[in-house]
């Protein structure tokens, strides 16, 4: 029981911290690389635009989401943009989405953009300059798995970085379908597994990954791409919102949100102990908590309406 209370307190404290930072900036950069053909160029641009639109829903200002397409994604422009962002001190969460083709020659990963390509090492250097509490890097390109060894998610500076790659290594070089499913996840209740109307990095990854696995399994085809997620806290890195939470986010009282998170945490703790509890007792307790949560949810909806 002591453990339960201590843990609950810690989780509650985390929630309060997160809420207190609600007005820090969420900055996103979405870069659509070189398509190589009209079909791919159109697709990449469409994906990038959809991602930018979705991330704008949780940005403090629309200008916190930057979209680079066509010649705007040239290397010098890209470097200049990252260096400009690196001067900001107000960023809570920074996200970078790379859409396009990547290559890997056995040593170096390159993101294909108009003009000279940008290497994995150069990208890592740019990302390391960004000062933010959390970072999310989504490399939706072929061979992007090569970045796992280049873009660090584990040291003291970058410990809060999450890296999602479309492939497991640099040798998976065929054009990937991963970004198509990333885009599908952004306003899809099916991707929102806890149905809190907030789509996290973990939910995007899981949705895209399971959709790809399911597709290749059903078709009895050998999957040419295997997405990977490295880094911590992807389940709490919100990428976008949809539904009521999005529509009424400014009208919801904070104390209700705190109560909602408190009950949610109690549910999480109960779920983690499922194996140790008698099945009927588990579901009775779950029912009681779910009814409380439903009540809070109803109050939130009433207030927001």
């Amino acid at each position: 029981m002591i453990f339960f209370r201590t843990r609950l307190f810690a989780l509650l404290a985390m929630c309060l911290t997160a809420l207190s930072q609600a007005h820090a900036a969420n900055v996103t950069v979405v870069i659509s690389g070189l398509g190589g053909s009209e079909e791919y160029s159109e697709k990449f641009n469409e994906y990038a635009t959809t991602i930018a639109d979705a991330t704008r829903r949780i940005a403090l200002t629309p200008t916190d989401v930057m979209l680079l397409r066509g010649d705007a994604s040239k290397k010098d422009i890209l470097i200049a943009l990252f260096e400009a962002i690196a001067t900001r001190e107000d960023i809570d969460k920074f996200s970078a989405f790379f859409i396009g083709h990547g290559s890997f020659d056995g040593k170096t990963y390159k993101f294909n953009i108009p003009g000279p390509d940008i290497t994995g090492e150069e990208l890592a250097e740019l990302l390391n300059k960004i000062k933010s509490r959390q970072q999310l890097v989504v490399a939706s390109t072929s061979a992007s798995g090569a970045l796992i060894d280049v873009i660090d998610t584990g040291n003291q500076i970058t410990g809060n970085r999450i890296l999602i790659t479309a492939t497991k290594n640099g040798r998976e070089k065929t054009a990937v379908v991963f970004p198509e499913y990333v885009v599908q996840a952004l306003d899809n209740p099916a991707a929102d597994t806890d149905k809190n109307e907030s789509i996290t990095a973990a939910e995007i990854f899981e949705f895209a990954n399971s959709s790809i696995e399911s597709y290749f399994e059903t078709e009895k085809l050998l999957a040419p791409e295997h997405a990977r997620l490295t880094g911590k806290s992807a389940e709490s890195f919100e990428v976008t919102r949809y539904g009521n939470l999005l529509a009424r986010q400014d009208q919801i009282p904070q104390e209700l949100m705190i109560t909602r998170e408190t009950i949610s945490n109690q549910i999480n703790i109960l779920r983690s102990r499922k194996e140790d509890i008698d099945e009927d007792e588990y579901f009775d307790t779950l029912q009681s908590l779910m009814l409380k949560l439903a009540d809070v949810q109803r109050q939130i909806d009433d207030k927001s309406n």
């Binding site: 929102d192 597994t193 806890d194 149905k195 809190n196 109307e197 909602r260 009950i263 949610s264 549910i267 779920r271 779950l286 029912q287 779910m290 009814l291 949560l293 439903a294 009540d295 949810q297 109803r298 909806d301």
Partner: peptide, 22 residues
């Protein structure tokens, strides 16, 4: 709801099935 605690439709059905529990 175990999978998705915030699932409004499921919450509504639970409330309906458990009667006027709130």
């Amino acid at each position: 709801l175990e999978q998705a605690p915030f699932f409004r439709e499921a919450q509504d059905l639970l409330v309906e099935l458990t009667g006027d529990s709130l």
